[in-house]
């Protein structure tokens, strides 16, 4: 028995959970899938005094299509995302990337909301939220609000959520037509934290030129890193190897800010980013062409 003692609540509705969050604002910690929080508690790195377990809030676990978007309850398990047919059809980037999240045992418990709110710069889901221009619905006892993914991540393990707010829903607009995607990462072993990873989206216009581009990186800074300048450099162009290489140079040398670790120096991380960017952009461009 290793975690420090805590007071435990297992509400079975959102209303109850919000009431508890308001009552314990600042002390109450949400337990979602527990795949990052419980290890931290086992090490006593984190010692929440009040734990509010959302696993019995059935109304937070859904995946459905509505108004040209996929709506996902924050307690939907990663394993459900992996096998969901709407996600596969409407946001194939997410479908392709979910198997990169840890291992099946972890994905059986881990939730989309938990990973987003944990805001680990090395995690896949925050990157995918930025890449897919997600909107995130935060709720508290006093009301609710929508936050764009780009405004949600506020640095290392930090988000825009207030202490009494719970992330309840994720809205993912359907990917645009004629859009190709790619998700690539390099990890020492399958399921380990990646040394570097990238999500890429390319939309082609009727003439085969790039209409829109997106490049977002994991483990490349203090949160998911949106390489806006590199992506912009591709817009309006007919993509070729030279353009793709120069975009990869902009992203890997200017826009990302990797910290390096015992497995990879920052130079090696930048090298990986450059190589992965080129591969991912080529795959995304090819897929966009195939969908035309």
């Amino acid at each position: 028995m290793k975690p420090a003692p805590f007071e435990y609540h297992a509400p079975d509705s959102i209303e109850q959970a919000l009431g508890l969050m308001s009552q314990h604002a600042g002390e109450g910690k949400i337990l979602a899938g527990g795949q990052s929080l419980v290890p931290a508690m086992n090490f006593r790195v984190v010692q929440p005094s009040v734990l509010i377990d959302l696993n019995r809030v059935a109304e937070l676990s859904y995946i459905r299509e509505e108004d040209n978007a996929i709506r996902i309850g924050s307690m939907a398990r990663e394993r459900h995302l992996e096998f969901d047919s709407s996600i596969k059809k409407r946001t194939p980037l997410l479908h392709e990337a979910v198997p990169f999240i840890a291992h099946p045992q972890i994905r059986n418990r881990g939730t989309i909301g938990g990973s987003i709110v944990n805001a680990d710069p090395a995690a896949e889901l925050p990157v995918l939220m930025l890449a897919l221009s997600a909107r995130l619905k935060a709720k508290s006892k006093s009301g609710e609000r929508w936050v764009e993914a780009k405004d949600f991540f506020a640095g290392m393990f930090t988000t825009a959520l207030e202490p009494d707010e719970i992330l309840v829903e994720i809205e993912l607009p359907f990917m645009m037509p004629n859009t190709g995607w790619s998700f690539m990462e390099v990890a020492p072993r399958a399921g380990d934290y990646a040394l570097m990873g990238v999500a890429a989206l390319i939309t082609l216009d009727g003439n085969g030129k790039c209409e829109a581009a997106k490049l977002v990186y994991l483990n490349a800074g203090d949160g998911p890193v949106d390489a806006i300048e590199a992506a912009e450099s591709l817009v309006g162009e007919a993509l070729n190897d030279n353009l793709i290489e120069s975009a990869a140079v902009i992203a890997s040398e200017k826009e990302i800010n990797p910290f390096g670790n015992m497995h990879a120096s920052t130079d090696f991380q930048r090298h990986l980013a450059k190589v992965l960017t080129q591969k991912a952009l080529k795959q995304a461009t090819q897929r966009a062409g195939e969908s035309q």
Binding site: K2, Y8, A10, G34, Q35, V38, P39, N42, F43, D53, N55, R79, H103, P104, Q105, I106, N108, R109
Partner: peptide
């Protein structure tokens, strides 16, 4: 390891595999 890395404690919860060191018994 008791932090979800080694997999030695894997059990089935409602027929799906899970790390038993990353769940509380109350859950």
């Amino acid at each position: 390891c008791e932090h979800g890395v080694c997999g030695a404690c894997t059990i089935l919860v409602d027929e799906e595999s899970a790390r038993s060191c990353l769940m509380f018994a109350v859950q």
